[in-house]
Design a protein around this nucleic acid. Structure first.
Lengths: 231, 231
DNA sequence: CTCACCTCGATCGTTTTTGATCATTTATGA
DNA sequence: TCATAAATGATCAAAAACGATCGAGGTGAG
């Protein structure tokens, strides 16, 4: 069997099963463990899968298994439910700001069914996801923040201020129902404020882990957003 | 049998079987391995198939419409070698433009060892990769091109024109050694030209599948780049 | 008819792939 | 924490495929 053919088969299998062990792949592809491992190495480099001891996991651009999902891993199902609810607040033909958080990225799949949307985000990962779902999307420029994988800084702000959107969907690290909505990064906070200022409506999405937390940089008071979507 | 007739038969077979070995093709076409290989070479140049050691795999859709993941899966080892060579042309402290192609993204791991770099890219995927490797990186803004996952348009160009870089590392869809370096997307071409204009040096990286191909949008003549890195 | 030209197949040195071996690392449970 | 079993990466040798080159055969123009 050809190398490329085998690698394509491997990916096909992985797409079905989401994850497979080296042993399983050996059986399915009629190849030795060494060969399977070599293929996995190549495909991991290409960003198509993530290797793990004993096998490999399909690498979807989805945040679930991404490295930066360390923070978000625990609340995935909750975030998905929240995202589904928030998507109901977005209407056909609108222009939407999405911030760079993992919570907001879960909204993307729900946007596919809303026609004629334009989405602007400062999250490269969210932007890629939007492209995969065939949604017209724009990315702000800016400096890459290592921790959160968000684009921030003056360039990002200038970009946002050049746009008028119907709605801004954003998240935050801390949400106090009797106080403020706060963030731990000044750069990200500044950008969120810019987005809020340039959008007619605002929607805060948050999972339960954010409640009661407080961080140094205030985005806005809890009463400010037009909608707050939690559980 | 005529050459053209044989090549048409080869493609017909390949369309049925999706992939075939050189041996199989020899038997089916009553030709020697050398002849089959020559045909495969021609047909690969034409973009109809992808060669793999031992045979060839059908190139399903037109390359332009091929999903990014599939396209980037081919020629991986070659791209990695080319990228490693190109990385040697980048020096500590420099500011670097990287375009959004898969070939240039393979340079990223090699940049980790070069201190004090600043990298600007119009590829969200490349930008994420840079962040993962802890390299100070910036992303241009712009509209997301669905096919290639590149950020393009006026916003991207304005961003690039606000920067002066030491070197621009770029790739192209078509490379003719006695002609031009060309691309299939006007928007991407325009951005590459902008990057080249704002960089003191230029490095073209390409794998062998690009050689001899020609696309409508000219980036620059083959003689223009300061360095050309292939195999 | 002869010459130039093109295609094809054969040969040979080189490269690629692959499975085996072995030391090292990793996960897991005592 | 430590031991054990499994998985991994590195290295190697053999087999297969590859590219380059050369000569044979066939075709068309002069």
């Amino acid at each position: 069997m050809l190398q490329l053919e085998r690698q394509q088969d491997l990916m096909r299998l992985l797409r079905e099963r989401k994850s497979m062990t080296v042993k399983e792949l050996c059986g399915a592809l009629f190849a030795s463990p060494a060969t399977v491992r070599r293929d996995l190495q190549v495909l991991e480099q290409a960003g198509l899968l993530t290797r793990s001891f004993g096998g490999a996991v399909l690498c979807e651009t989805f945040p679930d298994q991404q490295p930066f999902a360390v923070r978000s891993g625990a609340h995935v199902t909750e975030k998905k439910r929240v995202a589904a609810k928030a998507a109901l607040l977005i209407h056909p033909g609108e222009t939407v700001f999405l911030d760079a958080s993992s919570t907001t990225s879960y909204i993307v799949p729900h946007l596919r069914d809303i026609p004629d949307l334009t989405v602007i985000t400062n999250g490269p990962r969210t932007c890629l996801l939007l492209a995969e779902y065939g949604i017209r999307s724009f990315c702000t420029g800016g400096e890459m923040l290592e921790g959160s994988h968000a684009l921030v800084g003056r360039d990002a702000e200038v970009y946002v201020r050049g746009i008028r959107a119907h709605v801004c969907v954003f998240s935050a690290r801390g949400v106090e129902t009797d106080g403020d909505i706060t963030d731990s990064s000044k750069a990200e906070r500044d950008l969120k404020i810019a987005m809020l200022e340039r959008a007619a409506r605002s929607v805060l999405v948050h999972d339960s882990s954010k409640l009661g937390r407080c961080y140094p940089y205030v985005i806005c008071p809890y009463t400010a957003p037009d909608n707050i979507v939690g559980e």
